[in-house]
Amino acid sequence: MRPKLLPLSETMHLIMLALRKPLHGYAIMQLVGEMSGGQVNIAAGTLYGALDNLKKHNYIELISDPAERKKVYQVTALGEEILELENTRLKKFISLYESEDGSNE
C-alpha cells in the first residue's frame, strides 16, 4: 500500500520540497511562491494545516527551540524517502508523456 498522503497534493509537495532546508512559516510561503512561479500563494491557515498534517505523519519535524517565537521546520529522513518515492512516480509519469504509444518504456 502507498504511504499516507501519497500522491502529495500540490501544496504539500511544494512545502516538502521547500523544507529540504530548514525554514520558518513565512519563508516557506515565499519559497513556495518562487518555486511555483507565483502560482501557489499559501495562506497562513492553509500552511498551518499542511504543516500539522505532514508533522503528524512524521514527514517533517519542528526543529526550532520551543522557546523560539518563530517555528522552524525541516523534512525528516522519512520525508526524504517520501520525496524520493514521489520523484520516481513523477519520472514514470514523464516517461509516459514522452512515450508515443503510452507504454512504460
Binding site: 512559516g25 513565512y26 497562513a44 498551518y48 520551543p66 517555528k71
Partner: peptide
C-alpha cells in the same frame, strides 16, 4: 477572518499562533 480549530496542545497552539502572526495576522 474566522477559523475553527479543535483541541490543540500547548506547543501546537504556539505554532498555530506563531505561523499566523508571521503572516501579519
Amino acid at each position: 477572518r474566522v477559523d475553527f480549530q479543535e483541541y490543540m496542545n500547548e506547543s501546537k497552539f504556539e505554532e498555530y499562533i506563531s505561523i499566523h502572526e508571521e503572516f501579519g495576522w
